[in-house]
Each structure stands twice: as structure tokens, then as C-alpha cells.
Design a protein around this nucleic acid. Sequence first.
DNA 1: CCCGAATGAGACATCTCCGTCTCATCGAAT
DNA 2: ATTCGATGAGACGGAGATGTCTCATTCGGG
Lengths: 192, 192
Amino acid sequence: MSHSGYACLMAMDRDQVLRDAAALLSRKSTATMDEVARAAGIGRATLHRHFAGRDALVRALEELGIREFEVAFDNARLDEGTAVDGLRRLVAEAEPNAELLAFLVTENQLFEGDQVHEGWARLDARVSALFRRGQEEGHIRIDLSPAWLTEALYGLIGTCAWAVMDGRVAAKDFQYMIIELLLGGARRSVEK
Amino acid sequence: MSHSGYACLMAMDRDQVLRDAAALLSRKSTATMDEVARAAGIGRATLHRHFAGRDALVRALEELGIREFEVAFDNARLDEGTAVDGLRRLVAEAEPNAELLAFLVTENQLFEGDQVHEGWARLDARVSALFRRGQEEGHIRIDLSPAWLTEALYGLIGTCAWAVMDGRVAAKDFQYMIIELLLGGARRSVEK
DNA sequence: CCCGAATGAGACATCTCCGTCTCATCGAAT
DNA sequence: ATTCGATGAGACGGAGATGTCTCATTCGGG
């Protein structure tokens, strides 16, 4: 039977369509379904066969994003080593889905009547816990709240993803630019 | 004659409408013209009397944003003192228009056929020059490109504006959170 | 007190986009 | 070569947003 092989191929295509859609929608949120389809290299009809409508597409983007980032978090093994090491691994794992994250962060439709999406809240909690652990270990400043550091991490990942898309930052520097700025800051060490 | 006084009042109303529109559109870019009008506390007809259409509204947002930030840059006196001091003043001056900046950064319609808006490019150049000067003075790390630092500054301002809107960060901490993270980073100094 | 400008609310036609449909074509498995 | 499923292109009606209009009301100046 060719069922399983087919389903897998479809799933990969589906995810790739979603990634292309995220890359476009994160920069032009008013893009037409036709534009989304073109950006993904498929026809509008095929796009509609995969996702019932625009709402369903956004829902699917949310679900894929949350799923991918939960996997990324697991792969980053945030509990091993120091929080700083975990953060480095997290950024590395997040890189392939950075455009997806950029879309999710800017698209506030994750909120359904002032209520945050459950999976998103779970991710927030994990990142916050990571920063809090870093503070308790003495490696992270305590005058910057975990909530802010979490938002800043998301923001910097999205910003850097856009900068790479626009050619302002080299793709190979993605992790370095984010981690070095987030951890070390722009100021040059005085004692140097 | 009541002409001049009237024009001034209108201009203030107009700018306030634009600010409200930016705050809404930066979080819900698909918002209806009616929603924009409600968010600004005016009727849809009045909104249309000020701005011919949605495109005109976005154009006006661009122009206001660029104008406000050029004023902010002037007020920040970027040439006086060290680049770091100039950066501090810049963030302080930018705070009142942070939501506007958040809209402009995420809304990529500043690009008209792969060509960046002229005024925006000018602002970019000023920020980049500021960071470059900081590097030459020895106060800013040279392994982080001015282009990336510029984007990161915009990104952090927008992110922090959203965090304040969502109640994740206290409004009074706005400048501190941005400046401290951007300059010093999250890592706690080792020699402490 | 009166007058004029600006506003808000609503009606209306128009237009764009959406969702669904059909049909011809393509590719892969048999 | 044949068949079956998926795809792309295009047509179609419908829904929602847009842009324009009118009209009653309000507000401020004369």
C-alpha cells in the first residue's frame, strides 16, 4: 500500500507550504490567499484543499509553530548544563523555524478573546523558567525580569530572521548575532 | 482669523488618530477601517475625511512615524557625548512613539517594489552611524555589525512596546529594559 | 441667539477577496 | 500503455469591506 508513504509526503509538503506562508504573512499580513499560494509555489485550489480557509491556515500555522518549538525545546535539553548553555542550544534549534516564530509573535490572533493559546502559554512558561534558573544560578541578571527576557528572545529571533531575509545579516551569523547580543549586549567590556 | 488655530487642532487630532491606528494595526493588521475608527474614538466617515482610504492611512502612518523619529533623533543630539549616551537619549525620545515604530517595523509595506522608503533609509543610516561611531570609540563591540544592532534596536523597542501593552512589562521600565538588555546583555558580569 | 463647520450614524453601490466548483493536465504506480 | 489521484487554471456566486453619499446633531465663534 502506498498510503503511509503518501501521507508522509503530503505532511512534508503541508509543512513546507506552512513555512512559506509564514515567511510571507509575517512580512505582509494582508496578503491574499492567492499570494500565499503563489509564495508556496502551488495553486490557490490546492491551498484550499489543504486548509479550509484563511482561519484554518492561521490555526495550522499556530499548531505547527507550537509543535515545532516544543520539539525544539526538547532537543535543546534545557535542563542539562547551565541555563546559558541551554539558551544557546535553544537558539540553534529554533533557527530552522525562525520565520514561523516571527509570524506567531507578530500575529496576535493567538489570543482568542483575551485568552492566550494554551500551547503558547506553555512555551512561555518554559522559557521563563529557563531564564529564572539562570538567575538563580547567578549567570543571568536579576534586574531584567524573566518575562521581559522571554519576549526579548522571541523579538530578537524574529528580528534577525527578517534581517536575514532582507540580506542585512548573513544567514550563517544568525545564532551568533542573537546569542551574543542577548547574553553579552552591545557594550564592549571595560576591562578589556 | 481662526484658520491657524484650527489647523493646529486638526493636526493634533490627526496625529492622535494615527497613533491609535498604529497601536491597533500593529497588533491586528487585518483590522477593518471601522475598527480603526472605533479605536481612535471617531466615526468611520470622519476617518475617511482625514484619510482617503486604507492606503492613504498607511502612507500617513509612514510619514508621521518618519517625521516623529527624525525629530526624536534631533532631540537626542546623537553627536554629543559618547555614542552610548546618545543611544540612551534616543531610546528615551523614541518611547512616546514606540507603538508607531512597532507598526512601521512589522509592516513591510514601507517597501515599494523592493525599494526602501527614502526617509526610512535615512533613519537607518543615522542609527547605523551612531553604532559605528560607538565602535570606533571603543565602547561598542565590533563583532556585531551596525546593521544588526540597528535592527535589534528597532526590534527591542517594538517588542517592549507590545510587552507593555500586554502588561508583561511595566511602562516605567520601558527605557531601562531596552537599554540595559541592548547594551549590557542578559549575562551577569563574571567579575562581580 | 444664530450660524457654520465638523462630526456620527447610517444607507447605498461597488469592489475585492473568499470559498466552491469544473475541467484539462500531469505524474506515478501498475 | 492505462488508470487513478493530485494539481493548476479558471469561472462563478456570495460575503464582507470599502468608498461615497445624505442627514440630523453638536460644538464653537460671532
